[in-house]
Simulated scan of single mutants.
Amino acid sequence: MIAFRPLADDHPDLAHSPLLRAALLTLQYAQEHGAIGLTQTKAFKRVFVHWAVENFAWPGKSAEEMFRYNKVINEYEFPPLEVLHYLLITLRLGRHFKGEFRLTKRGADLVQSPGRLFAELIPFFVLQIDHASYARLNERPFGKWDVWMNVINVEADHGTTERALFAAFYGEGPDWDNAGWRDMAAFSSCVLRPLEWAGLLVQTAEDSGGNSLHHVFKTPLWRSALKLDTDGMLQPIRVQ
């Protein structure tokens, strides 16, 4: 079982969610400007895409890095915004009208309510979206969220590695430097990355003998927002 606990609008752990922060900024921008302009293909216009790149503070996608090689960025070149756009329309927090993205009443009601927006946005994003649809390889790992999240709850409680998590589900052997890299990529794209975008996990990279070793940790938001069957198996964190 996976249950998301309700969080107060001023709960400090909400700050760990990049997707929630991006959604709040987008809704606030649409409210302050009346609307966000759309292209002929109903993507956000570049003026807003550039604003989003500069203001989302997205992990691993700083404005400096993204503009270093591309002075013009389209929505599809900034995947977090493309996914967020889809989410806001699907959840009816915004709508397309006469070439513009405009807030719905529901969207306007949630602009000043981060806790309620989290409850609307994050469970749907993590559990209902086909994450392979926006991944580079469009391949899905075998498994389901109830198993993935309950195992990660235990395995990553005091920190682990991407490879160790993969092995916990699928066995030793596959890695980024052998024939199993596609399986690793599917697991990373469809399981770990959505949890990181939601703000429930965080990854850090360490250079180890020329290879990048990815460490995975649960954020405080995981602990405050989730109620899982394996919670009783967790060991208290010792304070030195």
Rank of each mutant, 00 (worst) to 15 (best):
A225W: 00
H33E: 14
A168M: 01
I237P: 04
H85T: 11
V154L: 11
Q31N: 14
P220Y: 06
I2C: 09
L127N: 00
T204D: 12
A22V: 03
W181H: 13
R102Q: 15
V72K: 12
E64T: 12
A164T: 11
G143Y: 03
P236I: 09
K144C: 12
L38T: 11
F118K: 06
Q240Y: 02
F56L: 07
Q40C: 02
E172W: 00
L38Y: 05
G60K: 01
H50D: 10
L110V: 10
E54M: 09
L19V: 07
A164I: 05
V191L: 01
V202Q: 10
H214C: 08
W197F: 07
L221W: 02
V83W: 03
R238H: 12
E196D: 01
L93N: 05
L27A: 08
A108D: 14
G143H: 01
V216H: 06
P12C: 09
L84C: 07
P220Q: 04
A185G: 02
F97Q: 15
F124E: 03
Q240A: 13
Q40P: 03
G159I: 10
P194L: 03
L228F: 09
E139A: 13
H215E: 10
L20D: 00
K45T: 13
R182F: 07
F118W: 10
Q128T: 11
G107C: 10
F124G: 06
E75Q: 15
M233K: 13
R92T: 14
A119C: 06
S133W: 06
C190N: 10
G171V: 03
P59I: 06
A52R: 01
P194Y: 01
F124N: 08
H158F: 12
P59W: 00
D177V: 12
R193H: 05
Q203W: 00
M66P: 06
F48V: 08
L201V: 01
W145K: 09
A185C: 10
E155Q: 14
E172Y: 01
P194H: 01
R140Q: 14
P236G: 10
A23N: 05
A225L: 09
D130Y: 08
E120T: 13
D229C: 11
L14N: 03
L228W: 03
W197D: 05
I129A: 00
L19C: 05
P220S: 07
A185S: 12
D10I: 01
K144N: 15
F187N: 06
V111C: 13
W181N: 12
G107L: 09
A168W: 01
K144M: 12
G60C: 03
K45A: 15
S208G: 02
V216R: 06
F124V: 10
L117H: 04
E155Y: 00
H50V: 04
L27H: 02
R116L: 13
T39I: 05
W176F: 11
Y134C: 09
T26G: 05
V202N: 00
G173K: 04
I2Y: 03
D183W: 05
